[in-house]
Protein backbone atom coordinates (compact mmCIF):
# COMPACT_ATOMS: atom_id res chain seq x y z
CA UNK A 1 0.00 0.00 0.00
CA UNK A 2 1.29 3.43 -0.91
CA UNK A 3 2.01 6.12 1.63
CA UNK A 4 -0.68 8.36 0.16
CA UNK A 5 -3.34 5.67 0.55
CA UNK A 6 -2.39 5.14 4.17
CA UNK A 7 -2.40 8.86 4.79
CA UNK A 8 -5.80 9.17 3.09
CA UNK A 9 -7.22 6.41 5.28
CA UNK A 10 -5.77 8.05 8.35
CA UNK A 11 -7.39 11.37 7.50
CA UNK A 12 -10.74 9.71 6.89
CA UNK A 13 -10.50 8.03 10.28
CA UNK A 14 -9.59 11.26 12.04
CA UNK A 15 -12.49 13.12 10.46
CA UNK A 16 -14.93 10.35 11.32
CA UNK A 17 -13.78 10.11 14.94
CA UNK A 18 -13.94 13.86 15.15
CA UNK A 19 -17.60 13.86 14.04
CA UNK A 20 -18.50 11.14 16.50
CA UNK A 21 -16.81 13.04 19.29
CA UNK A 22 -18.55 16.24 18.25
CA UNK A 23 -22.03 14.72 18.37
CA UNK A 24 -21.39 13.29 21.83
CA UNK A 25 -20.11 16.70 22.86
CA UNK A 26 -23.22 18.46 21.54
CA UNK A 27 -25.40 16.07 23.51
CA UNK A 28 -23.51 16.74 26.72
CA UNK A 29 -23.57 20.45 25.99
CA UNK A 30 -27.35 20.48 25.52
CA UNK A 31 -27.96 18.72 28.82
CA UNK A 32 -25.32 20.75 30.62
CA UNK A 33 -26.68 23.96 29.12
CA UNK A 34 -30.23 23.32 30.25
CA UNK A 35 -29.10 22.33 33.72
CA UNK A 36 -26.77 25.30 34.10
CA UNK A 37 -29.43 27.75 32.91
CA UNK A 38 -32.01 26.43 35.32
CA UNK A 39 -29.62 26.25 38.24
CA UNK A 40 -28.39 29.81 37.67
CA UNK A 41 -31.93 31.19 37.53
CA UNK A 42 -33.56 28.93 40.05
CA UNK A 43 -31.01 28.52 42.82
CA UNK A 44 -31.91 31.87 44.42
CA UNK A 45 -35.53 30.74 44.84
CA UNK A 46 -34.53 27.58 46.67
CA UNK A 47 -34.84 27.74 50.41
CA UNK A 48 -36.18 25.65 53.24
CA UNK A 49 -39.33 27.74 53.17
CA UNK A 50 -39.73 27.15 49.42
CA UNK A 51 -40.01 23.35 49.77
CA UNK A 52 -41.96 23.31 53.07
CA UNK A 53 -44.53 26.11 52.67
CA UNK A 54 -47.62 26.46 50.49
CA UNK A 55 -47.82 29.37 48.05
CA UNK A 56 -49.01 32.74 49.42
CA UNK A 57 -50.40 36.01 48.06
CA UNK A 58 -51.96 34.61 44.88
CA UNK A 59 -48.96 32.35 44.33
CA UNK A 60 -46.51 35.22 43.99
CA UNK A 61 -44.79 34.35 47.25
CA UNK A 62 -44.29 31.34 49.46
CA UNK A 63 -43.33 27.79 48.54
CA UNK A 64 -44.40 24.82 46.50
CA UNK A 65 -44.83 22.17 49.16
CA UNK A 66 -48.34 21.06 48.08
CA UNK A 67 -47.07 20.56 44.52
CA UNK A 68 -44.14 18.42 45.72
CA UNK A 69 -46.48 16.33 47.83
CA UNK A 70 -48.97 16.05 44.97
CA UNK A 71 -46.35 14.93 42.47
CA UNK A 72 -45.10 12.40 45.01
CA UNK A 73 -48.59 10.90 45.43
CA UNK A 74 -49.25 10.87 41.69
CA UNK A 75 -45.93 9.18 41.01
CA UNK A 76 -46.42 6.54 43.68
CA UNK A 77 -49.96 6.03 42.37
CA UNK A 78 -48.72 5.68 38.79
CA UNK A 79 -46.23 3.00 39.78
CA UNK A 80 -48.87 1.22 41.90
CA UNK A 81 -51.08 1.06 38.80
CA UNK A 82 -48.46 0.53 36.12
CA UNK A 83 -46.01 -1.87 37.75
CA UNK A 84 -48.31 -4.83 38.59
CA UNK A 85 -50.22 -4.51 35.33
CA UNK A 86 -47.03 -4.12 33.31
CA UNK A 87 -45.23 -7.05 34.94
CA UNK A 88 -48.21 -9.36 34.55
CA UNK A 89 -48.58 -8.38 30.89
CA UNK A 90 -44.88 -8.95 30.25
CA UNK A 91 -45.02 -12.36 31.97
CA UNK A 92 -47.92 -13.31 29.77
CA UNK A 93 -46.18 -12.10 26.61
CA UNK A 94 -42.81 -13.72 27.27
CA UNK A 95 -43.67 -16.85 29.24
CA UNK A 96 -47.13 -17.99 28.24
CA UNK A 97 -48.28 -16.52 24.95
CA UNK A 98 -47.76 -18.63 21.89
CA UNK A 99 -46.59 -16.60 18.93
CA UNK A 100 -49.48 -15.94 16.61
CA UNK A 101 -51.74 -13.24 15.17
CA UNK A 102 -53.34 -12.39 18.52
CA UNK A 103 -49.98 -11.75 20.16
CA UNK A 104 -48.82 -9.73 17.18
CA UNK A 105 -51.86 -7.49 17.48
CA UNK A 106 -51.27 -7.06 21.24
CA UNK A 107 -47.64 -6.15 20.61
CA UNK A 108 -48.59 -3.62 17.94
CA UNK A 109 -51.11 -2.21 20.41
CA UNK A 110 -48.44 -1.78 23.08
CA UNK A 111 -46.09 -0.08 20.63
CA UNK A 112 -48.87 2.26 19.53
CA UNK A 113 -49.66 3.04 23.15
CA UNK A 114 -46.04 4.10 23.60
CA UNK A 115 -46.41 6.52 20.70
CA UNK A 116 -49.67 8.11 21.80
CA UNK A 117 -49.15 11.80 22.72
CA UNK A 118 -49.49 12.38 26.44
CA UNK A 119 -52.30 14.91 25.97
CA UNK A 120 -54.38 12.11 24.47
CA UNK A 121 -53.84 10.12 27.66
CA UNK A 122 -55.00 13.20 29.53
CA UNK A 123 -58.21 13.45 27.53
CA UNK A 124 -58.81 9.72 27.86
CA UNK A 125 -58.35 10.02 31.62
CA UNK A 126 -60.77 12.92 31.69
CA UNK A 127 -63.41 11.10 29.68
CA UNK A 128 -63.04 7.71 31.29
CA UNK A 129 -61.85 8.07 34.89
CA UNK A 130 -62.98 11.58 35.76
CA UNK A 131 -66.35 11.70 34.01
CA UNK A 132 -67.53 8.19 33.25
CA UNK A 133 -66.29 6.47 36.41
CA UNK A 134 -67.02 9.66 38.39
CA UNK A 135 -63.64 9.75 40.15
CA UNK A 136 -63.56 13.50 39.62
CA UNK A 137 -60.29 15.33 39.21
CA UNK A 138 -58.36 13.36 41.81
CA UNK A 139 -55.17 11.54 42.74
CA UNK A 140 -56.91 8.32 41.72
CA UNK A 141 -57.81 9.49 38.22
CA UNK A 142 -54.39 11.09 37.73
CA UNK A 143 -52.52 8.02 38.97
CA UNK A 144 -54.50 5.73 36.70
CA UNK A 145 -53.85 7.99 33.70
CA UNK A 146 -50.12 8.24 34.44
CA UNK A 147 -50.04 4.49 35.16
CA UNK A 148 -51.37 3.77 31.68
CA UNK A 149 -48.95 6.30 30.22
CA UNK A 150 -45.91 4.46 31.59
CA UNK A 151 -47.37 1.00 30.95
CA UNK A 152 -45.58 0.49 27.61
CA UNK A 153 -42.26 1.46 29.21
CA UNK A 154 -42.80 -0.97 32.08
CA UNK A 155 -43.90 -3.78 29.76
CA UNK A 156 -40.88 -3.17 27.55
CA UNK A 157 -38.43 -3.13 30.46
CA UNK A 158 -40.06 -6.20 32.02
CA UNK A 159 -39.98 -8.16 28.78
CA UNK A 160 -36.28 -7.41 28.34
CA UNK A 161 -35.54 -8.40 31.93
CA UNK A 162 -37.56 -11.63 31.65
CA UNK A 163 -35.87 -12.57 28.39
CA UNK A 164 -32.45 -12.07 29.98
CA UNK A 165 -33.18 -14.75 32.60
CA UNK A 166 -31.20 -17.77 31.35
CA UNK A 167 -33.38 -20.52 29.89
CA UNK A 168 -31.29 -22.99 31.94
CA UNK A 169 -32.84 -21.59 35.16
CA UNK A 170 -36.31 -22.40 33.89
CA UNK A 171 -35.23 -25.86 32.77
CA UNK A 172 -33.55 -26.60 36.08
CA UNK A 173 -36.69 -25.68 37.98
CA UNK A 174 -39.11 -27.56 35.72
CA UNK A 175 -36.88 -30.63 35.79
CA UNK A 176 -37.29 -30.70 39.57
CA UNK A 177 -41.01 -31.23 39.13
CA UNK A 178 -41.89 -27.61 39.82
CA UNK A 179 -44.88 -26.24 37.93
CA UNK A 180 -44.47 -23.53 35.33
CA UNK A 181 -46.34 -21.00 37.47
CA UNK A 182 -44.14 -21.68 40.50
CA UNK A 183 -41.05 -21.53 38.29
CA UNK A 184 -42.05 -18.07 37.11
CA UNK A 185 -42.94 -16.92 40.61
CA UNK A 186 -39.90 -18.31 42.46
CA UNK A 187 -37.10 -18.27 39.89
CA UNK A 188 -37.87 -16.16 36.84
CA UNK A 189 -39.43 -13.10 38.46
CA UNK A 190 -36.95 -12.74 41.35
CA UNK A 191 -34.08 -13.03 38.86
CA UNK A 192 -35.64 -10.46 36.55
CA UNK A 193 -36.92 -8.09 39.24
CA UNK A 194 -33.92 -5.76 39.51
CA UNK A 195 -33.98 -5.27 35.74
CA UNK A 196 -37.72 -4.71 35.79
CA UNK A 197 -37.38 -2.11 38.52
CA UNK A 198 -34.55 -0.26 36.82
CA UNK A 199 -36.48 0.10 33.59
CA UNK A 200 -39.69 0.98 35.35
CA UNK A 201 -38.12 3.66 37.52
CA UNK A 202 -36.74 5.34 34.42
CA UNK A 203 -40.30 5.32 33.07
CA UNK A 204 -41.45 6.77 36.35
CA UNK A 205 -39.11 9.72 35.95
CA UNK A 206 -41.01 10.54 32.79
CA UNK A 207 -44.38 10.24 34.55
CA UNK A 208 -43.28 12.62 37.29
CA UNK A 209 -42.55 15.33 34.76
CA UNK A 210 -45.65 15.02 32.58
CA UNK A 211 -48.12 17.89 32.53
CA UNK A 212 -50.73 17.03 29.92
CA UNK A 213 -52.01 13.74 31.43
CA UNK A 214 -52.66 15.30 34.83
CA UNK A 215 -53.97 18.74 33.90
CA UNK A 216 -57.49 17.40 33.28
CA UNK A 217 -57.41 14.47 35.69
CA UNK A 218 -55.70 15.44 38.93
CA UNK A 219 -53.98 18.77 39.07
CA UNK A 220 -55.41 21.70 40.96
CA UNK A 221 -54.63 25.29 40.06
CA UNK A 222 -54.18 26.08 43.70
CA UNK A 223 -54.88 24.31 46.95
CA UNK A 224 -53.02 24.98 50.13
CA UNK A 225 -54.34 21.95 51.96
CA UNK A 226 -52.79 18.56 51.52
CA UNK A 227 -54.88 15.68 50.18
CA UNK A 228 -56.61 13.43 52.69
CA UNK A 229 -57.94 10.81 50.30
CA UNK A 230 -57.31 9.48 46.80
CA UNK A 231 -60.39 11.41 45.62
CA UNK A 232 -58.78 14.76 46.43
CA UNK A 233 -57.32 17.09 43.84
CA UNK A 234 -53.65 17.95 44.28
CA UNK A 235 -51.19 20.47 43.03
CA UNK A 236 -48.35 18.99 40.99
CA UNK A 237 -44.96 20.37 40.01
CA UNK A 238 -45.24 20.23 36.20
CA UNK A 239 -48.70 21.77 36.22
CA UNK A 240 -47.63 24.40 38.75
CA UNK A 241 -44.83 25.45 36.39
CA UNK A 242 -47.32 25.68 33.56
CA UNK A 243 -49.71 27.74 35.67
CA UNK A 244 -47.04 30.14 36.91
CA UNK A 245 -45.64 30.64 33.43
CA UNK A 246 -48.91 31.13 31.57
CA UNK A 247 -51.89 31.78 33.78
CA UNK A 248 -50.35 33.25 36.90
CA UNK A 249 -51.38 36.58 38.26
CA UNK A 250 -48.03 38.13 37.60
CA UNK A 251 -45.77 36.18 35.31
CA UNK A 252 -42.80 38.54 35.55
CA UNK A 253 -42.88 38.70 39.31
CA UNK A 254 -43.07 34.91 39.74
CA UNK A 255 -40.18 34.23 37.35
CA UNK A 256 -37.79 33.14 40.15
CA UNK A 257 -40.50 30.88 41.55
CA UNK A 258 -40.94 29.29 38.13
CA UNK A 259 -37.25 28.54 37.81
CA UNK A 260 -37.14 27.32 41.37
CA UNK A 261 -40.00 24.93 40.69
CA UNK A 262 -38.37 23.69 37.49
CA UNK A 263 -35.16 23.11 39.44
CA UNK A 264 -36.98 21.10 42.09
CA UNK A 265 -38.73 19.03 39.43
CA UNK A 266 -35.48 18.34 37.58
CA UNK A 267 -33.72 17.38 40.79
CA UNK A 268 -36.61 15.05 41.59
CA UNK A 269 -36.51 13.37 38.17
CA UNK A 270 -32.71 13.09 38.19
CA UNK A 271 -32.93 11.72 41.73
CA UNK A 272 -35.36 9.05 40.57
CA UNK A 273 -33.05 8.19 37.65
CA UNK A 274 -30.11 8.05 40.02
CA UNK A 275 -31.90 5.45 42.13
CA UNK A 276 -32.42 3.35 38.98
CA UNK A 277 -28.76 3.67 38.04
CA UNK A 278 -27.65 2.67 41.55
CA UNK A 279 -29.90 -0.40 41.51
CA UNK A 280 -28.51 -1.41 38.14
CA UNK A 281 -24.93 -0.96 39.31
CA UNK A 282 -25.59 -3.12 42.36
CA UNK A 283 -27.06 -5.91 40.24
CA UNK A 284 -24.20 -5.83 37.75
CA UNK A 285 -21.77 -6.30 40.60
CA UNK A 286 -23.69 -9.22 42.06
CA UNK A 287 -24.67 -10.90 38.79
CA UNK A 288 -22.79 -14.15 38.30
CA UNK A 289 -24.43 -15.83 35.35
Amino acid sequence: MTTTAIRYRYIKQTVFFGLVRLSAFILALALGGILAYIIVHGISALSWEFVTQPPREAMTKGGIMPAIVGTFYLTVGAIAVGLPLGIVSAVYLTEYARQGPVIRVIRIGINCLAGVPSVVFGLFGLGFFVVMLKFGSSILAGSLTLGFLILPTIIGASEEALKSVPQTFREASLALGVSKWQTILRIVLPTALPGILTGSILGLGRAAGETAPIMFTAAAFFTAKLPTSVFDEVMALPYHIYVLATAGTNIEETRPLQYGTVLVLILLVLGIDLVAILIRATIRRRKKW
Partner: peptide, 13 residues
Protein backbone atom coordinates in the same frame (compact mmCIF):
# COMPACT_ATOMS: atom_id res chain seq x y z
CA UNK B 1 -40.01 -39.00 39.89
CA UNK B 2 -37.53 -38.64 37.03
CA UNK B 3 -34.83 -36.07 37.77
CA UNK B 4 -32.43 -34.49 35.35
CA UNK B 5 -28.91 -33.11 35.31
CA UNK B 6 -27.92 -30.87 32.42
CA UNK B 7 -24.90 -30.38 30.24
CA UNK B 8 -23.89 -27.11 31.79
CA UNK B 9 -24.11 -26.76 35.57
CA UNK B 10 -27.18 -24.59 36.20
CA UNK B 11 -27.50 -23.80 39.90
CA UNK B 12 -30.02 -21.12 40.84
CA UNK B 13 -28.63 -17.76 41.97
Amino acid sequence: RIGMVFQKPNPFP
